[in-house]
Design a protein around this nucleic acid. Structure first.
Lengths: 337, 337
DNA sequence: CTATATATGCTCAAATTGAGCATATATAGG
DNA sequence: CCTATATATGCTCAATTTGAGCATATATAG
């Protein structure tokens, strides 16, 4: 694997007005909690917020974008990534609020990586951190979180009422409609895949810390607003939202969930992992039926004791399913409307 | 709209070792044939193949990547794009075989654009061209195309048998398995969304003209190989494959098909458009049931005569569906296995 | 008037899905 | 040993969705 020396960062950026940043949302699930690798700000350094592992694409050193990403992640965290998927390329000017307008313009390519490396394992230069601390409103496993009913929804309704700086609602329907679609307000139903849409709406409404940093959120000077999720450097929380939204969709039609599982597991452990990702609660018996009927898993012949009840059969992923079905995945459905 | 002067191309690229190219796959459906906008090579110019409208991202002139894309398309074709969606960012070195290694490294961002502008309308600087001439194996509306049975499949089987330059099959299973998955060979079932996977497999097997240009395809010196689809400049056929694959998937869960329809249409016209995109044949009565039951359309109250039979009711898209359902689309299924 | 299109309503069986009942087999504690 | 309480697992049942096709309606072309 090509090792990129630090000097490349200097060689490849300042001459050009354009730089491509590679960002990795590295995901794992540990004890039913989704975790990501973040780089914590150094003490007394200028930056105060967590960031994702990232680095500039160095065309001379990196054969492809993905190789460049793997190389940066290896250098910054020591992790050798397995499953990697490109998410989206963000190129908005003004994304990097801390950067002056004279600096290089950064286009950032976001990636999703899945790993079954356990969070206790040391990650040099980074730490595993719970995903839901960045998006507390996304976890509905114990029902609708209070932060939604008590804080987010009332303020979003307030925001929807005011549609222009003058205070007169000129297009209230548009915002109202978006609240229905994104947050399932007015009984519209929660779509767990709309993670990015929800984050961007909160940003637009000035309800997340990055919005204030980016010069938004002055329209309504929210008073007594608690911090809605942990903010992140640059647009990393947006990349993270994209990652989780993509993953929530993808587990339904591709067996990527097994990238997060150990070699063998019980069906309940698998279900808990899916629930951790999708942020919702599933019907146990139906989940089993689904997974077994889809041919996704195979019994290992061994059992797991210590489950707290009757011992459970152990299973492993059945890779042959990839050749049998066009789109195999855990087609979880949140429930009939 | 920001107009980008040609000089920007010069200003923004040569100093940097890095350039971001913006590429548009602009799609329309006319008389049941999907059409795309291509830029034809100039007579006596070096390039011989069609290309997609494209141009470099100019950070100083373009607020966002998408704005840059719209601007280039406007300049090169005169089209004002409506629906635009980012597809993927390609960054492989060696993608641009015609470029010397010393030129700027180009990372290209592909976009899908949908328009209902009709193909007769003049497109300055570009022409509308049938999508299936680039991918003749993708059209199964009249059943499995002969090019698959007669040319592609036999050669792919040949390719699968040889897995290393020495002629000994070391991993025949892997290639065989990919043929099953990508091309549905050995009764595995055709997944119409795997357009990119199929094109890339053909490239790998040296069966498309770009493969020879890119220095592949020498492993098996195919004799008497007819041209498999019209080749394109750079990796534009790959971007086009990505576009069609994405669209084939997306029409199932988002009402994007209406971006391609006129204001009002009959259900059969809608069906024909969906069939043109998905490349497959649908059951008429079930298609109606699906579309009407999903609340995607609404009667206009008018009828279309001249259908060649009983007059048909005219419908239009019902935008309210966007607020009612989390993922409204034409959930076409090709048939039970 | 007939052949032939397309349009549209309706049926019916198979498959899928949502929900829950019932039973099996562990552990923890008296 | 017995009981309470977990989790595991098998099975039922109704509602819904899906695949396929029959039947009828209403145009146009000759």
């Amino acid at each position: 694997m090509t090792r990129v020396p630090q000097t490349d960062r200097i060689l490849n950026s300042p001459k050009s007005g354009l730089e491509i940043g590679l960002n990795a949302a590295i995901l794992s699930v540990h004890e039913n909690r989704p975790q990501i690798v973040v780089v914590r700000p150094k003490e007394n350094a200028g930056q105060a917020w967590d960031s994702l592992p990232f680095g500039p694409f160095a065309p001379l050193a990196h054969q492809t974008l993905e190789i460049g990403l793997r190389s940066w992640v290896k250098e910054q965290t020591g992790l050798e990534l397995g499953y990697v998927e490109q998410l989206y390329t963000f190129g908005d000017r003004g994304r990097h609020a801390q950067q002056s307008d004279t600096g290089p313009h950064i286009v950032s390519v976001g990636y999703l990586a899945l790993t079954r490396i356990q969070p206790e394992q040391s990650v040099s230069g980074g730490v595993w951190h719970g995903w839901y601390s960045y998006f507390p409103w996304e976890d509905r496993r114990e029902g609708k979180p209070e932060i939604l009913s008590n804080i987010i929804e009332p303020r979003l309704r307030e925001w929807a009422k005011r549609d222009d700086p003058g205070g007169v609602a000129i297009r209230p329907f548009e915002r109202q409609a978006r609240l229905r679609i994104c947050f399932g307000m007015d009984d519209a139903g929660w779509d767990e895949e709309k993670v990015l849409e929800r984050y961007e709406l909160l940003h637009e409404a000035g309800l997340v810390a990055e919005a204030i940093r980016d010069g938004r959120g002055s329209a309504i000077p929210w008073t007594g607003l608690p911090q809605l999720g942990t903010p992140m450097q640059f647009d990393h929380r947006r990349i993270l939202a994209t990652a989780m939204g993509r993953l929530r969709g993808k587990i339904k039609y591709r067996p990527v969930i097994f990238e997060l599982m150990p070699e063998s597991f019980t069906l309940f452990e698998l279900q808990k992992t899916v629930e951790a990702i999708s942020g919702s609660h599933l019907h146990k018996q139906n989940f089993r039926r689904l997974v077994e009927h889809a041919g996704l898993v195979e019994e290992t012949g061994h059992m797991r004791t210590m489950t707290g009840g009757r011992p459970a059969k152990l299973f492993h992923f059945r890779p042959e399913v990839l050749q049998e079905r066009p789109a195999p995945g855990v087609r979880v459905t949140v429930g009939r409307a």
